[in-house]
Amino acid sequence: MQEKLQEILTEVREKAPALVTRADFEAFKATISGPNGALTQTMKEMGRVPKEEKPALGRLINEVKGQISSLFDAVIERLEAAELAERLGPAIDPTLPLPDPDRGILHPIAQVREEIVSLFRRIGFSVAEATEVETEHYCFDALNIPADHPARDMQDSYYLPSDLDVANVARHEQEKYLLRTHTSTVQIRTMLKESPPIRIIAPGRCFRRDTPDATHSANFHQVEGLYVDKDVTLLDLKATLDYFVKSIFGPSARTRLRPSFFPFTEPSFEMDFYSPNLGKLSNRWLEIMGCGMVDPEVFKSVGIDPQVYTGYAFGMGIERIAMILQGVDDIRYYYQNDVRFLRQFA
């Protein structure tokens, strides 16, 4: 019997490593430890063994059983590993090109707009919106732009037919609709809806009737800012815009407020900046935005008392800032959307 056990063990030792499928393994295992297996049969002979031999033989059986069991475990482990390897396939090549399109990118103008907006949101401004179709009242009259101002000329603005009715843009009276020429309209719409304190930043699309060229486009984008409260001063305006210019163009940028004229602010300024790090545009004054203190006439047109409240407003062209920041010399590139151009700002 001892010999038999040794034979079985030897057989398992010899054959187990050669087993390559689970089925072969199960079949082989049945010939050993199945109901009719060699080991099972041998153990049945235990009953015929003399009593005094039983303990020694018992130990032997257990030992053989243990060894066979670990040989079988090793086979299972080996088979499982092989199965897993088969399921996983060969090792990946991490350098193959991705079979999916590249991640999309936001348009360079959207990126700059977002940068501008977030700089102002950081200091307490929130984003306001209004429509692109506007009326003469909200685009001009309420902003103190008189009826015979050149901006109101048919040459400079896109008008809609006088008999047109726009369902979701409210008119003041029966004035004409047009495409807004600036985002300053959002100032008016917001001041009519909210009461001070008002601190808004309004990015949006504007339209001017210009022949397209390297710096003019039928539509373009502006960001308008407005701050109205009881104690807003010129000092605040300067501090805010200095912060903005230095944040976006770097701390080495210098600014100046050049007195100018806009009907809706008094005093009015153009803000210029000067930077040593702008390539071709370095070391010269560049106009960056118009700004000023809200004109009392504008406050009157929206029912805010100019004796109680003061405010500042500013407006800048997003394309202009984008062109300076991104070194783009023709505005039309932005509207072609050649992905090779767009990707340069990824």
Binding site: R121, G124, S126, P197, I200, L234, L235, A239
Partner: peptide
């Protein structure tokens, strides 16, 4: 305008949602 002093930005809480 070059004589307007430098000052800090006054940042107050946001009064409106975007």
């Amino acid at each position: 305008t070059d004589k307007i002093p430098q000052s800090d930005v006054v940042a107050r809480g946001i009064s409106l949602d975007d």
